[in-house]
């Protein structure tokens, strides 16, 4: 058992990494579950790319400074989210096409900015994160974002569920449809920014979507999915950090691959809608 406990007991950087990853697991996975349920799984990925130019501007202005890069990332993400939503609601273009257009523009801008100043090492840092070097400021930011996310989701839970299950009905009985959509996109952006401190912009989407996708094979209710997804993310975090410590692997990809493994197992053997459920169905009932 010591290989399980010792890395976290002996090294502060491992404790910080664990705290950071568990915090992200709590905040990002419910966002991922709703992304999945709204058939917006790839939106998370597109948004992660859209954040890049903001982080790059922050980096150009202030160097490798957490605050500046965070503000820049959030700003860029929100601008793309608002433009996308506005174009989808007020023109003939649908949300997916509108998002694709803006995130590609944003991504190109980001790559251009990063290449203006800065070495490849910096780019690697932004792209792949540094979970083993989370400082106090970064951990505080992660905790703040997760707390805000959970409170916001709790408050907007009912309209959000309605917006997923029957958007036309929500629009017919209330004015929540627009606000809850933008609030949700805002939470996506915030959690991606939180995730990119630790896992990098590319990997941050993984901790959002993979646990949610795995949870679909275990639970038939939203509450159940949220609980399973958070658990999957937490377990993946621990497993990934241990693999990273013992085998000297980069931690971000190790965590996401751990989540990916759980996803593949769920897809194969989960009780609800999995391959096993399809090809080896349980005995059926009388009525």
């Amino acid at each position: 058992m010591s290989w399980l406990i010792d890395p976290f007991a002996d090294f502060v950087f491992m404790q910080r990494a664990l705290l950071g990853c568990l915090t992200i697991s709590l905040g990002a996975t419910p966002v991922g579950v709703f992304l999945l349920l709204r058939r917006m799984s790839l939106t998370g990925d597109a948004m992660a790319h859209a954040i890049l130019p903001g982080a790059a501007v922050g980096y150009l202005v202030a160097g490798l400074n957490l605050g500046a890069m965070t503000i820049g990332g959030v700003a860029a993400g929100l601008i793309v989210a608002v433009l996308t939503g506005a174009v989808a609601r007020f023109t003939a273009l649908r949300e997916d096409a509108s998002l694709a257009a803006f995130y590609l523009i944003s991504l190109a801008l980001g790559v251009l900015l990063v290449s203006l100043k800065g070495s490849n090492v910096d780019l690697m840092h932004v792209l792949f994160g540094t979970v083993l070097a989370l400082d106090d400021a970064a951990l505080t930011l992660l905790c703040l974002i997760t707390t805000f996310t959970l409170v916001a989701l709790a408050l907007a839970f009912r309209p959000l569920v309605l917006e997923c299950a029957d958007p036309r009905f929500l629009a017919s009985v209330s004015r929540w449809s627009g606000p809850v959509h933008f609030l949700f996109l805002g939470l996506v952006v915030l959690n991606l920014v939180a995730g990119f401190q630790a896992l990098g912009t590319l990997m941050a989407v993984g901790i959002m979507i993979l646990p949610a996708a795995a949870a679909r094979f275990w639970a038939n209710s939203i509450g159940g999915m949220l609980a399973v997804a958070a658990t999957v993310a937490a377990v993946s975090s621990v497993a990934g950090l241990l693999a990273s410590y013992h085998a000297g692997l980069p931690s971000g990809p190790a965590i996401i691959l751990a989540a990916g493994t759980i996803y593949l197992l769920s897809l194969s053997f989960g009780p609800s809608g999995s391959l096993a459920a399809r090809y080896w169905p349980r005995a059926h009932l009388e009525a």
Partner: peptide, 11 residues
């Protein structure tokens, strides 16, 4: 044509 997502996990 309702826009109800009938695969949505709700009772």
């Amino acid at each position: 044509l309702s826009e109800v997502d009938r695969s949505f996990p709700i009772a």
